[in-house]
Nucleic acid binder design. Structure first.
Lengths: 187, 187
DNA sequence: TCACACATGTAACACGTTACATGATTTG
DNA sequence: CAAATCATGTAACGTGTTACATGTGTGA
């Protein structure tokens, strides 16, 4: 039941329509909670029905109208209560690692290819996170930011994403090296 | 559809019953694909029905009988084909990071508590992975192991788990430090 | 004797994914 | 003129979670 809370947490950044929320998830939230647009539309309806969000239609001239959603007081309370409930251990589910586990009985070249794709993706994400970080810091150093900012949550989750991608890059490079050496030794 | 392939990959280590497979997932597979016993029982039935596994009943004297499953030739082929299909980007879903994102509107102490629980868990997992690694290496160094072993997949995914938990430990410690300093500054 | 490990499942529900549908406007 | 972006959704299906049910054997 944490998609709800990921949505509520994302709306702390300010009101959004389903479409805008999907964008927001793509760039920053996906880092700790990924969701498809369809899930978001469904969840927004439920949250509104349950009184945790309120929606209103914004009429637009050269665009289709949109429905933007804002946290209600109940929504904020629910989010607060959620942070106090015990978190359950995270479930990892990584396609690529299943492939790597089976690499000795699988297609070596395809797995190496998949690793390079992952590596490139991680580099891209890291670049994005660095740019987002620069935007948050806005010239200040980290210590200054942390003592001035009234919200540190988004910064800390961003740093988690950065660390995760950096580790991913290091690990992928190591594994690619190992697989390449083994491939060379087999010829 | 990758639970199937995680099960097939886990059975590369040798035949297992549903119960044994659940244990195997807990200690090593959970690192890249977590699943509940219920999911495993369901999937084992499907895989047998589809001819990718064959099951046989092992009668036991002082224990309930068990059904152990083995990869069939079709199962190995399917696993090979899977390694060659494009992997999709991993979907992160982390409860704790949702809480951290909302920490400024949430219960600070509860979030710090949750972080220490996560930290302890990561330390435990890291210890486990170190012991599993020692078991695999069996006195050899990594280079010797990698050139001698006929399967490197399980070692490489284990190293992914190690790296992930190490990073988690570093990051949790940093974040706890930051939150503690902020809590102190607010008094 | 009490809790834990062995061993297998069912049922109901919640959540996530994929494909499709619609239609306007802006950018190349 | 085509492709991408804005904007919202439905339907069908596949996967994952939770609670429950059952019974034996082993070790503290």
């Amino acid at each position: 039941m944490a998609l709800r809370h990921a949505v509520l947490a994302a709306l702390l950044e300010g009101e959004a329509s389903g479409y805008q929320l999907a964008k927001r998830f793509d760039v920053s939230v996906a880092n700790f909670w990924s969701a498809t647009p369809q899930q978001l539309y469904r969840e927004l309806e439920r949250l509104e029905r349950d009184g945790l969000l309120s929606g209103r239609v914004v009429e637009q001239r050269r665009r289709p109208n949109k429905r933007v959603f804002t946290l209600t007081a109940d929504g904020r309370e629910e989010l607060h209560a959620f942070t106090a409930r015990p978190a359950r251990p995270t479930a990892m589910r990584d396609d690529l690692l299943v492939k790597l586990q089976a690499v000795d009985a699988g297609d070596q070249d395809a797995v190496r290819k998949a690793l390079t794709v992952r590596l490139e993706r991680s580099r891209g994400r890291l670049d994005l996170y660095d740019r987002l970080r620069d935007g948050l810091l806005d010239g200040r150093d980290e210590a200054a930011y942390l003592s001035e900012a009234d919200r540190v949550g988004p910064y800390l989750t961003l740093m988690a994403g950065r660390a995760y991608e950096q580790e991913n890059i290091r690990w992928s490079e190591t594994v690619l090296g190992i697989l390449d050496r083994r491939a060379a030794a087999r010829r």
